[in-house]
Amino acid sequence: MAGSTNLRRFPGFLAVTIACLFVLYAPLIVVAVYSFNASTSITNWGGVSLTWYLDVFTGPEAPKFQQAALNSLIIAVCASVIATIVATLAAVAMTRAGGFRGKTLSFALINLPLMVPEVVTAVASLVFFSAIGFTTGLTTILIAHTVFCIPFAYLPISARMQSIPDMYEQAAMDLYATPREAFKLVLLPLMTPGILSGFLLAFIISLDDFLITNFVKGAGIETLPTAIFGSVKQGIKPNIMAISTLMLVVSVVFVSLSWLVGRMGQEKT
C-alpha cells in the first residue's frame, strides 16, 4: 500500500523479530517436544514416545492430577458463568443507561482487577477471607476467580454492545415489545457473540490462574496449576511437561474460539 510504512526497511527488524519469537516460543516448544521424550531425563533425548502422556492418566500421580483438574474445571465453569452474567448486566448498564452519576467510577471499578497487581489482590483476598473466618477451600477460590474474571468477560461484551445501535431496541418497542421483550428478543441475540467470547476468555483466565489461587486455597485443595507447581518443587519430571502441553492446547483452543466467535458476530451485522 502506498504511503504505509514498510517495516522491513527498519534497521534490525529481522533480528528483533527473531529474538522476540525465540524468547516467547522457544520454551514452549522445548516443553512440548520433551513431553514426547521416551527417557526419564528432562535434558537427554531418548526417542519419541507417549509414555508420559500415559503416565499423566495412569501413573502414580494420576489421582492427584485428576482431582486437581476436576477442581479447576468446576471453578472455571462456575466463576466464568457468574462473571459473564455480571459482566453482561454491567455492559448493558454502561452502554444503555445513558450518562448516570458515577459512570466513570463504575467503569474504573469493573476494570480495576486488570490494573491492581495480582499479588496485591491475592494477599488482600487472603487477609479478607481469614479476617472473616472464611476458609473453605473451593468456595474461596471460586469467589476470588469470579472477581478477577469479570473484567475479562466485560471487555468483549461491552465492545460488542457498543457496535449495536440502539435503533434495534427502539424498533422493537415501536413494534409493541415491552422493554423486557425488546431485551430478550432483540438485544440479547445480537449480544450473544460478545457474551460467548467473554465467557470463553473468562474461562481460560480462571483455568490458568496460579497466584491468587495459591494464596486463597484451603489446605489440601489443589487446582491444576497449583498441583503442577507442587509437583515441580519435588523435581521436574517429564509428566509435568505432558500436562503443561495438554493445558497449552486447551488454552489455545479456547482463546481461538473466543476470537473466532467474536469475529463471526462482527461479520453478521
Binding site: 445501535p165 427502539q170 424498533a171 409493541y176 422493554p179 425488546a182 451485522t269
Partner: peptide, 17 residues
C-alpha cells in the same frame, strides 16, 4: 412507545439482523 398504535419506518431501517 410500545403502547402507541403507531409504527415507524426508520431512516436506517433497523431491521433485526
Amino acid at each position: 412507545p410500545f403502547k402507541r398504535p403507531v409504527n415507524t419506518v426508520f431512516q436506517q431501517y433497523a431491521l433485526f439482523p
